[in-house]
Design a protein around this nucleic acid. Structure first.
Lengths: 131, 131
DNA sequence: ACAAAAAACCTACTGCCTATCGGTTTTTAA
DNA sequence: TTAAAAACCGATAGGCAGTAGGTTTTTTGT
């Protein structure tokens, strides 16, 4: 998945906005820089076709929402960009972790351990919620 | 950093090969599929200009080597693809970890903890080696 | 119901990048 | 010193983002 600069800016905007139509996105993203409403419409449409946005008519216009939040998209992009380099049987995300961890210092490793603990808590909470 | 299919195949080859000239890469990568030696030369040159390969004349031809190993490249690509989505002050790699860990189950979290321990050992070994 | 306004849709062009390869110059080696 | 090998140059094709003009469809106010 390749994302252009404008596409990224639109996503950023939609992570703040809950939802928005082309007009809103346009006026928000073209304060200094130029660009017509059509450009924004095309970009929203391309993101929709990439399955990164949902949309639904509300009144007159489509209202778009981000399908993935920021972290989910990051995880997706990491999958995309790493999958070609992961050997069969190897888990793509674990392998990516392995690659990245090689550049981390002690403090960051500790941060990671905390994140792992938080994730465990999240998992056990999900489990009890399921009852 | 965007890598095309052929570029990826060349990198894969050079991770196995230690080093190789265009001729070797060409005969290795064009068993079934077509492609001239020139195509491989261009691809090697593009990778060289992207700073992903080193090269040096040995006898008649350039011999190319991968500048980054597989995991280093993966880490680099993750940096590239995530940096646009990381908020200022946030560490790009930690943030990427955070994103990815959200999709991991208990077993994978344990694998991660093991990786973190291994990385710690590597760090302390480096430290003692520095003496 | 109808006309004006708004939005969606189609189409096309530019720019950038990869893949491809023909042809020319430079380098190497017999 | 020339014939072969390699490097280098240039050109084309295909794909995708960004951009926007123009047309059709939808919505809405009167």
């Amino acid at each position: 998945m390749i994302l252009g600069e404008l596409e990224k800016r639109v996503l950023h905007y939609l992570w703040e906005a809950p939802e928005a139509d082309a007009k809103q996105v346009h006026s928000a993203l073209t304060k200094r820089k130029g660009g017509t409403l059509n450009t924004i419409q095309s970009t929203l449409d391309r993101l929709f076709k990439k399955n990164l946005l949902t949309r639904q008519k509300q009144g007159h216009a489509y209202y778009y929402r981000a399908k993935l939040d920021r972290k989910e998209l990051i995880a997706q992009l990491i999958q995309d960009v790493t999958s070609d380099f992961i050997n069969k049987g190897e888990d793509s995300l674990i392998a990516a972790f392995t690659s990245v961890s090689a550049g981390l210092d002690d403090e960051k490793l500790s941060q990671l351990e905390i994140l792992i603990q938080q994730q465990r808590h999240r998992l056990s909470k999900e489990d009890s919620d399921a009852h």
